[in-house]
Design a protein around this nucleic acid. Sequence first.
DNA 1: GCAATGATGCACT
DNA 2: GTGCATCATTGCG
Length: 212
Amino acid sequence: MEDVSSLVAPLPQAFFEGATLDVARALIGKTLARKTARGLTAGIIVEVEAYAGAMDPASHAYRALTPRNRSMFGPPGRAYVYLSYGMHCCINIVTEREGEAAAVLVRALEPAYGLALMRERRGASIGDRDLCRGPGRLCQALDITREQDGADLTVGPGMDGVEDGLWVAETGDWAMDAPIAASPRIGITRAVDWPWRFYVAGNRYVSGRPAR
DNA sequence: GCAATGATGCACT
DNA sequence: GTGCATCATTGCG
């Protein structure tokens, strides 16, 4: 494993409280990290989708606050994790100020740390490209479940004994000049034309059809 | 390579 | 009962 010194400092809450579309673009190239008793896993965010609240008919928070979407209404920098299609978890990062329901869905990571542990969770025959390519897959690789719903991503792993952590950090020497492209969001049936999906153009870890 | 499909839990009508 | 912010597998080229 490489040097992880830059990885242990979580981004502050101020990073997440801006306009959702801005935060979504800014999250591209950051690292999503997860520490459990089994070890550290982390990947570079290469694909996200923005979901707003009352004005976005594709959002889980389009209607009223419910037990499921509660985290989207909370303070920025928290996780919103939900169960999709009865079997996969997906993680969002909450944006905007508390009371304003909005979040960014993390759709794909370029695996960076703990690939062996990811493969234990995902399956021994899974290639690097498919470890974290897709919102359900990356949650399985990082062991993100609904237990992490509402988790504060700005706390970080701490200096010493914290066994369980989930946070977002700067990425060390990742090529930040990678071009960010936009497209409609995937897998939705409303607001299908809004270009609120952002991804690294040409990156092989992006989900869906080959990026153009 | 691609499209079609079943699995499966739960929020919501 | 219906509809998902999905994925792995199958069958075909």
